[in-house]
Design a protein around this nucleic acid. Structure first.
Length: 836
RNA sequence: GCCCCCGUGGCGGAAUGGUAGACGCGAUCGACUCAAAAUCGAUUGUCGCAAGACGUGUCCGUUCGAGUCGGACCGGGGGCACCA
């Protein structure tokens, strides 16, 4: 028996034992109830960071707990291995994206293994391997054949110097990040998935996701952005043609003072082709980036085309047609009518360009002519609106839609903000889109027997742009239909496609098809999915869509892939800056009283905000170094301690040291077992059973900070207890209870105490409900709601007995004095409140 | 601008409308030690010698009783659509 638990020796010993016993292999054929615990798989960026450790530790605790409860647990790990950083590395370091990625995977896999996660490594997958993305190509073709894939023109950021497409994050202040050239928008023909076909059911489905955070459901709801309104047409005053608009406020139709069309609207483009001034204005609108932040801060620009349209409810009423930079082509119809009095943006626009501002909604009919000093966007009653006058906003809205439909100039419509999912990426390091373009036959799917379409390895990155475009040997293929010469699609799939079905492939991975339906359905939906909130919208929405699409084409019998979702907070760290403003890493500074100084120079250091660990701010702590020093279990324990898991966790050296101390405390308790104690100890027995119950509840609710506190309380109680048989038993149980969180320590302690077999195979301790209830309770005695005394009485003492004892208490009697209580509130076993 | 979340000791945080501050970190004192580390014990919301008073961002309300419920405000953080 040793005095100290030695993680350096112990961690790898038990990891090897679990491996040898195949402890974490998930058996799809097992008769046990199944539980699928999944954490979002990592991008192999180089090394594991603390955020990964926190994420995977949480999932691991749940997986190990479920396993001990008797579930057959699927807890897999893989790699979201396609993406831009690999191509950037290729350009900067002259390495092949595949070599770079596979090297990172090897490094990170080794790092994960050091943490002793209960993962089924036999199911490991990497999305960059043909045995994964080949099946993805087959699924893409399934969706293609089902009519859920189509091609359309769409704008991309184009770098005119590097001659390459840029992602939003590669556009810095409107310029290409490498070339520095002003970015242009360019139209390309691209592939889209019809996610908008599923808008309504994706929205409806959110209601069934009870085990998701409300926050995420709300974010998805807002993203889908359903709204009801009126779609209608303005006739061109010049004759010949109409402009169709959509509005959610048809009740304000008599407040219209202009019609605005998007610079991308066909009418705008047609005018631009004829008139230099229009073309110039459109070009101005297209300057600058496409990100939300940039558009939001952009000044509103308008151009009066001189065209006019006729108001649908008054043939004499003409409205001017403007081109406006704030009108989006891909929402609604790309055109709108402006009601300055009741829309903030229209108000600003009308004020700038001197357009009429007419009140048509007021708090009451009597205020019909009150001045409009700012946009009043709330509901009220219609005024100055002819036949709508006096109607409340909802009624006015219904009435105008009814009339539009009756008179045939418009119809009620549901509009979604959600747009179809563009999946084409003009990049090498992604799954090739399995399409062949033939001049005669058009876009032809690659025949199934030719899948996978494998990425060629012999590519170079010395020139910007997609190397596939330059790889003629790979591109040039015969057309599958006419055998004429044809070209492969050189765009690759968005990496969100890769992550939209990996959880299905984890559950079932036959070599000849993407998954076996029965096997996949045995595991899915994922019982608990854990990951960062940064994926609250895109990844989770795309995965939900993909699952529904597979359901629609009859491949999978479920609508929702993730039953439970948990979004964990980030791991943060204080930041440090030297006098010259440069960032310093935690290892370069040390504390000096209340100040911090730079170790090397001795200069003072300013501490900055606590922020997410990031390389750019140098506030990262490498998990490997911490494991070397403190062992895997201390790291795991700290990741679970203190902060509620959905909130940020601030890394601190004190925190990890406290965790390491705890590991040793448990070890010392285990070492003290069977040291001669006998007899029973009712208090410890109760504490133990209460702890088992509380711990189970906390783990199920993923409240790991509370789980940790529960364990601490138990350890404190056992340490203080005198030796007894009960105490020995409590220590054995304690070791089981900590095993999901600190598995290496638990196994080592279990073995030291002479436990049989691997603890990982042990049953989760059960608790006796009878022992959760104390015989004696402490009852609070309040006078006028303030605590004055407490009573210790037998559980279930009658009300009159509680009253009697409360009134008899010395402090209480003194406060009451001569007064007689007006009222006595008695909550049995809890409190007595004496109201004077 | 809109939407959402959060404000509790020196710090992270507990608390079915019912004894605020569990648990951890830090700190102070003590024990052990030649000394240190490790460990153990005690104390630790504020004011006060004490009795006691005050105390969950601020104000108002509901209630016998509010950290918890409602309203208004202040502060911090996050998300996002020029979405008609």
């Amino acid at each position: 028996m040793t005095n100290r638990f030695d993680p350096a020796a112990s961690d790898s010993r038990w990891q090897e034992r679990w491996d040898a016993a195949d402890s974490f292999r998930a058996d799809s054929a097992s008769p046990k109830p199944k539980s699928y615990v999944l954490e979002m798989f990592p991008y192999p960026s180089g090394r594991i960071h603390m955020g990964h450790v926190r994420n995977y530790t949480m999932g691991d605790v749940l997986a190990r707990y479920r396993r001990m409860q008797g579930f057959e647990v699927l807890h897999p790990m893989g790699w979201d291995a396609f993406g831009m950083p690999a191509e950037n590395a290729a350009m900067e370091k002259k390495v092949h994206p595949g070599d770079w990625t596979r090297q990172n995977i090897a490094t990170m896999r080794a790092q994960l293994k050091r943490l002793g996660f209960a993962l089924d490594w036999s199911r490991e997958l990497a999305t960059c391997e043909p045995d994964y993305y080949g099946h993805e190509q087959a699924l893409f073709l399934d969706l293609f054949e089902a009519g859920l894939v189509y091609r359309k023109e769409s704008e991309v950021n184009w770098d005119p110097v590097d001659m390459t497409v840029l992602a939003n994050e590669q556009v810095i202040d409107g310029r290409g990040w490498r070339s520095g050239a002003l970015v242009e928008r360019r139209k390309l023909s691209q592939w889209f998935l019809k996610i908008t076909d599923f808008a309504e059911e994706l929205l409806d489905g959110l209601k069934t996701l009870d085990d998701w955070p409300d926050k995420v459901r709300l974010m998805q709801e807002n993203w889908i952005g359903k709204s009801r309104g009126l779609q209608f047409r303005f006739k061109r005053a010049e004759g010949g043609g109409e402009i169709e608009v959509f509005t959610t406020r048809p009740d304000t139709i008599f407040g219209a003072s202009f019609v605005a069309i998007s610079p991308g609207h066909p009418i705008a483009e047609a005018l631009g082709a004829e008139r230099a001034d229009v073309a110039e204005f459109i070009a101005r609108c297209r300057q600058g980036g496409t990100t939300a932040a940039e558009i939001e801060t952009a000044e509103k620009l308008g151009f009066d085309t001189g065209l006019e349209v006729v108001h649908p409810l008054d043939p004499e009423w003409r409205l001017p047609v403007w081109i406006a930079n704030f009108v989006l082509m891909d929402y609604g119809t790309g055109a709108l009518f402006g009601v300055p009095a009741h829309d903030g943006r229209d108000f600003e626009f009308a004020t700038k360009y001197g357009l009429p501002i007419r009140r048509v909604v007021a708090p009451s009919v009597g205020e019909a002519n009150a001045a409009v000093t700012e946009a009043e966007i709330g509901a009220g009653v219609a005024v100055n609106s002819r036949f709508l006058d006096g109607l409340a906003t909802p009624e006015a809205t219904a009435e105008i839609i009814r009339r539009a439909e009756a008179d045939g100039w418009g119809e009620g419509k549901t509009q979604y903000r959600l747009r179809d999912w563009g999946v084409s990426r003009q990049r090498y390091w992604g799954a090739p889109i399995p399409i062949i373009h033939c001049e005669g036959c058009g876009a032809v799917p690659v025949p199934r027997e030719q899948l996978p379409v494998v990425l060629p390895e012999d590519v170079s990155f010395d020139v910007p742009g997609n190397p596939l475009d330059r790889h003629d040997a790979w591109r040039q293929v015969p057309c599958p239909q006419c055998s004429g010469s044809a070209l492969r699609e050189t765009d690759t799939l968005d990496t969100f496609v890769d992550s939209s079905w990996y959880f299905i492939r984890f559950a079932s991975q036959p070599s000849d098809k993407p998954f076996d339906r029965a096997e996949a359905e045995a595991w899915l939906p994922v019982g608990q999915y854990i990951g960062g909130v940064e994926h609250a919208i895109l990844h989770l929405l795309y995965a939900r869509f993909w699952t529904r699409a597979l359901e629609r084409i009859g491949r999978l019998g479920m609508a929702e892939p993730f039953k439970g979702l948990f979004t964990q907070g980030m791991v943060t760290h204080e930041t440090y800056r030297a006098g010259d403003g440069s960032w310093l890493s935690p290892g370069e500074v040390r504390r000096d009283g209340d100040d911090w100084i730079h170790i090397e120079s001795g200069q003072p250091v300013t501490t900055g905000r606590v922020e997410k660990m990031s390389k750019s701010k140098k506030n990262v702590v490498d998990p490997d170094a911490i494991i070397d020093r403190y062992g895997a279990d201390a790291v795991r324990w700290f990741m679970l301690s203190d902060s509620p898991p959905e909130r940020d966790l601030e890394w601190s050296i004190g925190g990890i040291e406290g965790a390491a101390r705890f590991v040793q405390r448990v070890w010392r308790l285990a070492a003290s077992v069977d040291s001669g104690g006998s007899g029973s100890d009712a208090a410890i027995e109760r504490k133990l059973h209460k702890s088992i119950a509380a711990l189970g509840e906390a783990i199920e609710a993923l409240q790991f900070n509370k789980a940790v506190a529960t364990i601490y309380e138990l350890v404190n109680a056992i340490e203080k207890a005198k030796p007894s048989a009960t105490r020995d038993e409590a220590i054995r149980t304690l070791v089981k209870l900590v095993s999901p969180m600190a598995p290496h320590l638990a196994e080592e302690a279990w073995a030291m105490m002479g436990g049989k077999g691997l603890l990982v195979d042990a049953e989760w301790p059960s608790h006796d409900p009878a022992l959760l209830i104390d015989d004696e309770v402490t009852v609070a005695v309040q006078v006028n709601g303030k605590l004055r005394e407490t009573l210790t009485v037998p559980r279930g003492s009658p009300r009159d007995e509680l009253e009697r004892q409360a009134l008899a208490a010395e402090k209480v009697a003194r406060l009451i004095g001569d007064a007689s209580p007006r009222k006595l509130i008695v909550v049995p076993d809890r409190l007595v409140n004496i109201v004077l």
